[in-house]
Design a protein around this nucleic acid. Sequence first.
DNA 1: AATAAAAGTGGAACCGGTTCCATTATGTTT
DNA 2: AAACATAATGGAACCGGTTCCACTTTTATT
Lengths: 342, 342
Amino acid sequence: MQKQPTIRDVAAAAGVSVAVVSRVLNPGSGPVAETTRGRVNEVMETLGYHPRTAARELKHGPPTTLGLLLADVSNPFFARLADQVVQEAHSRGIQVLLMTTQEDDQLESERLSTLIERRVSGIIATPTGNNLEIWKKLQDMGTDVVFVDRSIPALPEVDVVTINNIESARSATALLAAHGHRRIAIISGPATSTTGRDRIAGYREALEAAGLEQDDLLVRSAAFRGAAGGDAMTALLNLDDPPTALVVANTAQVTAVLRRLAHAGVSIPDELSVIVFEDSPWTELMTPPLTIVRQPIDLLARHSVQLALSRASGKSSGKPTVVRVDAELIERSSVGRPRVRT
Amino acid sequence: MQKQPTIRDVAAAAGVSVAVVSRVLNPGSGPVAETTRGRVNEVMETLGYHPRTAARELKHGPPTTLGLLLADVSNPFFARLADQVVQEAHSRGIQVLLMTTQEDDQLESERLSTLIERRVSGIIATPTGNNLEIWKKLQDMGTDVVFVDRSIPALPEVDVVTINNIESARSATALLAAHGHRRIAIISGPATSTTGRDRIAGYREALEAAGLEQDDLLVRSAAFRGAAGGDAMTALLNLDDPPTALVVANTAQVTAVLRRLAHAGVSIPDELSVIVFEDSPWTELMTPPLTIVRQPIDLLARHSVQLALSRASGKSSGKPTVVRVDAELIERSSVGRPRVRT
DNA sequence: AATAAAAGTGGAACCGGTTCCATTATGTTT
DNA sequence: AAACATAATGGAACCGGTTCCACTTTTATT
C-alpha cells in the first residue's frame, strides 16, 4: 500500500518548482524549456506519478465527467444506449458516471443530488417525469441537461433527443392497415410518458388515414416494469372482437407480450400480425422473424453526448435543441394478411 | 448560470465558522449544539448548498467511487451485470464509473490510467488479459481489484468472482451425452481466456466420463467480438462427420451461431441438439425454447461489489478471495435424441 | 463553591493540484 | 553595446472542503 507521489514530490525530484511541473502536465498553459520538460517527464515516469483528478477539478474543474441516468440497464435498449454513450464520451476523453432510477422518482432525486455534488458538466437522462425543481436547478447551475428517449413537457427548456415516435408508430400501423387489417391494437408505454403518448398519437393518425374505426379497447398502456405487458396482451386476446394485428410500442414489455402470446398458442402471423419496437438480434431468430421498428441508438447516443457537452465546448445557443431521429421499419415475416373471420 | 455557494458562504450566513458547518455535514465528526445544527441546515437549504465531492475527496477521500470496466455493455450478459452492480453499489451509497474496453488492451490501459487518476477505491473488471503491470500497480496503490467472469492466471493475487465454468460446461455436455449423443461439439471463447479454457476443460471431462472419443475438430474457439461464432458454426456443419449436439459456451457469440443455424436450415433439436450459455428472456421465446445455462448474474454482482469495497470496509484479509458461483442448467426443448444416421 | 470533565466553537493548516505575477535568463533589434 | 522583447522559472495564493488543536462555555462531581 504505497503512498502516491504528489506534484511536489515530482518537483523536488526534478529540481524544479511545482509550477513548472504543472505546465508540463498541461501543455499550452505556459512555456517550458525542452530539456526541463524531458527531465520532468522522466521523473514522473520513474516515480509512477499520476495527477489526481479530484485536485484538478477543484480549480475551475474542466468538464471531464458526464452523468448517465437511465431507468435501468438490463433493458437492452438502454444497455446499448449506455454502450454507445460510453464509447462516444471516451472518444472525447470524457468519463461516464452510470446511474439507474428503476423508474422511481425518489431514487431519481437521490441520484441527481449526487450528480450535483459531483458538479458533472452534463447529464443524459431518461427522466421519470417528476423532480421538476431539481432539473431546473441543474440547468441554473450551468449543467447541460439532455433528455433522451423521453421528455418532460413541463420543462420545454431542456434539450431532447428522441426518435420520431409519432412517425414510427404511424408507419408501423399503416403497414398493418395496408395488409388489410381493420382491428389493429397497440400496447404502448404509460400515457404519462411522452413516448407512450406520441406513439399512440401516431397510431391514431394512421388509423384515421386508413379510414379505420378507433376502438379504445385496442389501446393498452403497460408500465415500464413488471409483467404489465403480459396482462395487457391477455386482455386483448380475451376481447369479444380481438385484434388481428398488434403494435408493441413499449420496448420494455416486448418479451413479456411475446411470452404471453407463445403461452396462449397464438400463431404469428396467421392469427395475429405483430410489429415490435425492439432491435435485439433475437428478433431475427424468432419463428417467424419479427418485423421491427429499429431505433437508431447510435444516433441517439451521438447527439446526446454532443448536446451534453455543448455548453462546455462553448456552443451554447440560447434556445433548447430538439433532435428527432427517424426510426427504421424493417419488414420481416411477422406481418401477414388477416385471416378471414369464420 | 448562478455561482454555487461554498461552505464559507454557509458559515457566514449562519454566523458560525466553517468547522461547525463541516461537522453538521459529517455527523459524528464532532459535537454541534442542536440549535446551531438546525440553523445551519436551514441556511444550507435556503442557499441551495451542496458540498462538492471533489473537494471532499481531496482530504483522505472516502471511497465513494468504484470503477466498472467491462468489455462492452451491448452484450446482455454484461449489461445485466452492470445493472446489478450499479444497484448494489447505490444501495451502499457508492457511485459507479462505467468504462468499456471493447476487448482492446490498448483501450484497457487508457481506462486504467483514468481510474488511477481518479483514485477510485475499487475496480470490477473483465480484464483483456494484458496490462499486467498496471493491474499490479493498482493493487500496490491499495485499490481493490476484482476480476469478474474471467481472470488472469498470471495475477493470482487478485480477487476473482466467476461462475463455475468447468462444472457448467461439464453438466451441459453430460446432459447431451445422456441423451445418446456421441458427436458433441463446443464453441467456446478464445483459449487465451480462462473462461474459454475452463469451459473446454469441463466439456472434456464430461466426454471422458461418458467414455466418448475426443475430436479436436469439434472444439472451436470464437473471438468475443465479430462474426467468429458464425464461421465456427459453418465449419462444424461442413465436417465430414458433423456433430449431432452442440454447446455454445461463448456467450458473446450465441446469436451469431444461432443465426447461422437458422440460415443453414438446421432443425433443432432434430438435426442438432443445442445448449447455450445465455440467459436472455428471448431464449425462452425461440422455437423450440432453448435449453440454457443460466449464470447467476445477481450473485456475481453482489460478490463483486462486496469484494471491491472490502478493503474500504476494513475486511481486508491477506490472501486473495476466489468466489465461484454455480450456474443453473435449465432444460427446455432444444435437446433431443440424436437422429439415427442414414 | 471550587474543580474537573464535557460540550461547543473558531482559527488555521492541509489535501494536491492550477494560475497569477514577479523575477531572472536568453535572444533580438538598432 | 544599450534597450527591449521574449522565454523560462519560482513563489505564493487559491479552489472548497476536513481536521487538529486551542479556547470558551456549560454541566457534573464532591
